[in-house]
Amino acid sequence: MTNAASKSRLALSAIFVLALLYFLTWGRHWPWPASLPHIGVDQWQSVKTVFVSLFLEALPFMLLGVLVSAMLQSFVSEAALARLIPRNPLLGVLCAGLLGVLLPVCECGMIPVVRRLLRKGMPAYIGMTYILAAPIVNPVTVLATYSAFRTAPEMALYRTVLGFAAAAAVGLLLSRARGKAAQPLRPDAASLHAAAAEHHHHEPHRSTSSRLLSFCSHAADEFFEMGKFLMLGAFLTASIQTFVSHKEMLALGGGAFGSHLFMMGFAYVISLCSTSDAFVAASFNGVFPAGALLAFLVYGPMVDFKNTLMLLSAFKARFVLRLLLLVTAVVLAASLLAGWLLESAAR
């Protein structure tokens, strides 16, 4: 870890701890520091409720991802993986997108799995295509979108197609990266740990129970590593949901272009799972054109506040920033085009 990265992480943790102390104060009736705005008990309770609910909901999926990652570590060799991955970038990107249809794991669970696969030699652009596409194209999300947009079932189809296309486009753009940019993983303790373990695993005399213990130990390592970012993301998301009103955000979005940008920004800050965001989008039906709703439905599962923090746990900050900009540009362009096509078709 570089010095700058460790400093920024220290600052983030400090903010988090300070915020929590602040949170604690209302319960103890400590005197309010005059410089801090007064925040009511019910607002802190809202923060807690949303924070806990985001954490508890993401917990099983993150744990599943961590366990799959630990299993990959133990049972899938680099050579086996290399044989499976297509050489051609276009083919690779399409396969990664299709894999998303078959393996319905939500975004919290995918990052540890993809990181493990990248460590085992999978090209970064294929991993990222999977991370971007899977939350949208998987059947659970399609079904949820369909039931949210009962009176406009075509939205589920548009969302899937647009999500797949945008993920593939970002993947292809990323596949052009060479050198350092093609190695986006953050070096950290866990990888050194894993590399050392690799060596260890080849010793023939290891018993099943000791393998199982090492499996649990690796899972715990990764759980804590990812969990920190989930905690932070859930807490900040809960604060945003509590203290920033939708109306204030709505005031920012005007015009066709504005409504797309607004819905994308909105999807980013509320950080919902792809299986439940369709219902929120449906509540904006009639307020915004279909193209802007699609921007929300495609952008949110690909990148949002919570998942940016989780990406930062595995990837270099520079790479995450590049990915964010790329996804934003591609989804904005794709959803504007889709909106324009839909409007022309309606005429």
Binding site: G40, S46, K48, V50, F243, V244, H246
Partner: peptide, 18 residues
């Protein structure tokens, strides 16, 4: 904090925000 603070539902304050 999860353990020590009461479990409450979200209410009209959150409804106003949303």
């Amino acid at each position: 904090l999860f353990f020590l603070t009461p479990n409450t539902t979200i209410g009209s304050a959150m409804a106003a925000q949303k």
